[in-house]
């Protein structure tokens, strides 16, 4: 079969198609977590007062929140210098983001451990309140997205380190990684505040 040589010309469009596609992907992630948080509310709201579990989430989560917020700043730092061809500063930003991302993941894992030790494991047949199980599912799936985003950051990092980006591609890749990473940060703010304050909010609504 024959093929015509052509090159996609993206300059005429308001938004690069890959950026647009990324926003659509973000929309799907929003729908997934929208589904979970709606399910959380539906189930928690149906509980009677006696079935409700009273617990505190580990304070460690506040530190994790701070870590992911700072990692957004460091990635923005990397993007700023990457676009100005300052390779060293850009690399520094990318390394810091990657490190902070790992720290965040470790922190979340640690929080899982602390919760389990305090008698709130993922699976507990004696429990009638699913909000803790939802905490594990939501946090875990968010963590999986962080892993994916870290791979993206790692990809940009390695390509920058080896100078193997084609002309013009560095800025695009940095921006794609940035959008995804910032989105996951924002998503975590929402999820954390939701998981932290929704039990109390539901209790007061009765």
């Amino acid at each position: 079969m024959s093929a015509y040589s052509y090159e996609m010309d993206y300059r005429n469009y308001i938004i690069h198609p890959l950026k647009f596609a990324l926003w659509l992907f973000i929309l799907t992630v929003v729908m997934i977590f929208g589904g979970f948080t709606s399910a959380y509310i539906v189930q928690a709201d149906a509980l009677q007062e006696s079935q409700r579990l009273i617990y505190d989430l580990p304070p460690l989560l506040w530190r994790n929140l701070a870590v992911i917020l700072v990692s957004s700043v460091t990635l923005q730092f990397a993007i700023y210098f990457g676009k100005r061809n300052n390779r060293d500063f850009s690399l520094l930003g990318l390394f810091m983001t990657f490190g902070l991302g790992l720290l965040f993941l470790y922190g979340q894992w640690d929080a899982f451990g602390q919760l389990t030790e305090s008698g709130l494991p993922f699976v507990d047949p004696d429990r009638t309140d699913n909000s803790i199980a939802f905490f594990y599912v939501i946090t875990g799936l968010h963590g999986m997205h962080i892993v994916a985003a870290l791979l993206v950051v790692l990809f940009v990092l390695i390509k920058t380190l080896t100078n193997s980006f084609k002309p013009g591609k560095l800025a695009l890749n940095l921006e794609l990684a940035g959008t995804f990473w910032h989105f996951l940060g924002l998503l975590w703010i929402y999820l954390f505040l939701f998981l932290k304050f929704m039990p109390d909010a539901l209790k007061e609504s009765i």
Partner: peptide, 19 residues
């Protein structure tokens, strides 16, 4: 030529590649 992320201007000429 098929690298779809080229940011160069579009140009076309007949080229019959057979994968």
């Amino acid at each position: 030529l098929h690298d779809e992320l080229h940011d160069h201007a579009a140009h076309h000429h007949d080229h019959h590649g057979h994968g």
